[in-house]
């Protein structure tokens, strides 16, 4: 396992360094964009002129969103954050299974005394470690920003749960990616499917917030269970944890079963 993890880390070291550093800088930036307590009041007045559907669409659906805390929390659901972490998740999970198969290098791995379960678990550990590092980078950006700018009662620890929730969302996508990758022969094909499903469900969640007929279908999108910029998600959300955690575990189980039984 240690040897395989080293192999995966070496293969993906560039992205493994890029994602946490990129997220650190991005979330630091949000602490600079967040309104101070004095600015919050003026900003809230301006936003009160916008229709509620628009506010919902841009993620500013309640009073909390226009506070310093709300703006920083919005960074955790920003497409850039999701994209960076998804890049890592999809690349490593699909590359580690379907990618090695498609390139032909899986023959050299699977003909060694390494069980298929170990191969899947090594990829899983690497994906989750990268997600944890990425999310830690994002939180570190917030923490460094808040340590260098006074935003009243806003504390870095306020964003521990949104960070954990973000990690859980990506873990759910990791489970799905692993399940797809375990059943495909080409990394490109697996990446295409996962990226397509992610894009559609992201759009479904986003549009569903503004467009009433789609609102009922939002429940099928994992992104629905992750909304750290809303007040209620600043504390533990049991339904979200159950859905996202369940997806992550189910995906991993499917990947293990399929990969153990398939022809390589």
């Amino acid at each position: 396992m240690r040897v395989l993890l080293g192999h995966l880390a070496r293969r993906h070291r560039f992205v493994l360094a890029l994602v946490p550093l990129g997220l650190l800088a991005f979330h630091f930036l949000f602490t600079r964009l967040a309104p101070s307590p004095a600015e919050t009041e003026r900003f809230g007045t301006m936003l009160s002129f916008l229709p509620p559907q628009i506010l919902e669409g841009i993620g500013l659906s309640n009073a909390m969103s226009v506070t310093g805390r709300g703006v920083i929390a919005f960074g955790y659901v920003h497409p850039f954050t999701i994209l960076m972490l998804s890049l890592w998740t999809v690349r490593v999970s699909c590359g580690g299974l379907a990618g090695e198969l498609g390139e032909g290098t899986m023959d050299l791995l699977a003909s060694r005394p390494v069980s298929r379960t170990t191969l899947v678990l090594a990829v899983t550990i690497m994906v989750l470690a990268g997600i944890a590092l990425g999310v830690a980078g994002a939180w570190s950006g917030t923490a460094i920003g808040l340590a260098t700018r006074d935003l009243g009662d806003v504390r870095a620890t306020d964003f521990l749960w949104p960070s954990a929730s973000l990690a859980l969302l990506l873990a759910a996508w990791a489970g799905f990616s692993l399940a797809v990758a375990a059943s495909h022969r080409r990394g490109g094909g697996a990446i295409g499917i996962v990226a397509g499903v992610m894009a559609v469900t992201f759009a479904l969640d986003y549009i569903g917030r503004m467009y009433a007929p789609l609102r009922l279908m939002r429940w099928i999108s994992p992104f629905t269970y992750f909304a750290p910029h809303q007040q209620r998600y600043m504390s533990v959300d049991a339904v979200g944890v159950a859905v996202l955690g369940g997806l992550a575990v189910a995906g991993l189980v499917v990947a293990l079963v399929v990969f153990r039984r398939r022809d390589l």
Binding site: G104, T105, D107, L108, S111, P113, V114, S115
Partner: peptide
């Protein structure tokens, strides 16, 4: 798995 510790393999389509 264990028996493959004693096995060497050169694939026909080496990658």
């Amino acid at each position: 798995t264990e028996l493959r510790r004693d096995v060497g393999y050169l694939p026909g389509e080496l990658a």
